[in-house]
């Protein structure tokens, strides 16, 4: 498996460069928005990748709650971490695009904006829990929180959807059709981002596995050390009644 890592890295780098070239040079400029629309090739693939990673996190969390396999837990952790990074990219590129096009940085009533923000908040709290927990069973707590977060998402979407229909706000042109050339570049970019995300997840997974092995070795070592100390102190405690 390890042999494929450099090959995949090179392929991903080439694909990312090709996607960037396509997005910035080849694809035609939008008739209404001008060049600023090109941020879509970063914004939308990041969003799709983040949502996919969060979905994997949810599935892995459920499997973990049933099977309690440590590997599945590492998958959940890794997907949450990388997903938060991609989601941050979405939340940063969104306002950069919205400012010239909508005239505002942020539309609090917009459904996709707000649900993405809430999703981001939920997963940040997930990572905070994992960082702050002192329990030996952090994985169980985190998996339960992931389930709660996933249950929350449809409710968030539903509530804002109704909220918005009462308070009309500018919305991304839903229902509009896209030039096939643009769609093609969008999909190429998504593929490049997926490869990149997979690559990062993979190395993070290996890192986490090593991390846990080292932790375990340390724990065993200190246990062995404690055992020896106990033995060493035995004659002393006997000789001092």
């Amino acid at each position: 498996m390890k042999r494929f890592f450099p090959i995949l890295s090179i392929l991903t780098a080439i694909l990312l460069a090709y996607a960037l070239y396509q997005a910035l040079v080849v694809v035609p400029t939008d008739a209404l928005q001008g060049d600023v629309y090109r941020i879509i090739y970063y914004h939308v693939p990041s969003a799709w990748t983040a949502f996919l990673l969060f979905l994997i996190n949810f599935v892995a969390s459920i499997i973990y709650l049933i099977r309690r396999s440590p590997k599945v837990d590492i998958v959940a952790l890794v997907c949450a971490e990388v997903g938060v990074v991609f989601c941050t990219v979405v939340l940063v590129t969104g306002p950069i695009w919205a400012r010239p096009v909508w005239g505002i940085w942020w539309a609090p009533g917009d459904i996709r904006l707000t649900s993405t923000l809430v999703l981001w908040l939920i997963y940040v709290s997930y990572l905070v829990l994992r960082r702050f927990s002192t329990s030996a069973q952090t994985q169980v707590l985190a998996a339960a929180l992931a389930v709660f977060g996933a249950l929350d998402v449809p409710l968030v979407y539903f509530s804002i959807w109704f909220f918005r229909t009462q308070h009309p706000q500018p919305v991304i042109g839903g229902g509009g059709s896209m030039d096939p050339r643009m769609l093609r570049v969008l999909l190429i970019n998504w593929l490049a981002f997926l490869c990149f995300a997979f690559l990062v997840c993979w190395s993070r997974y290996r890192l986490e596995v090593l991390h846990r092995e080292v932790d375990q070795a340390h724990a065993l070592e200190s246990l062995a050390g404690a055992g020896m100390a106990e033995k060493a102190s035995l004659p002393l405690s006997r000789s001092a009644p």
Binding site: L121, V124, S125, L129, F132, S133, T134, L145, F148, G149
Partner: peptide, 16 residues
């Protein structure tokens, strides 16, 4: 079972 328990609760509760 977390460090700084009192801070943790709102961090978990408010997003959900």
């Amino acid at each position: 079972r977390t460090r700084s328990r009192e801070i943790m609760l709102p961090l978990l509760l408010f997003p959900i």
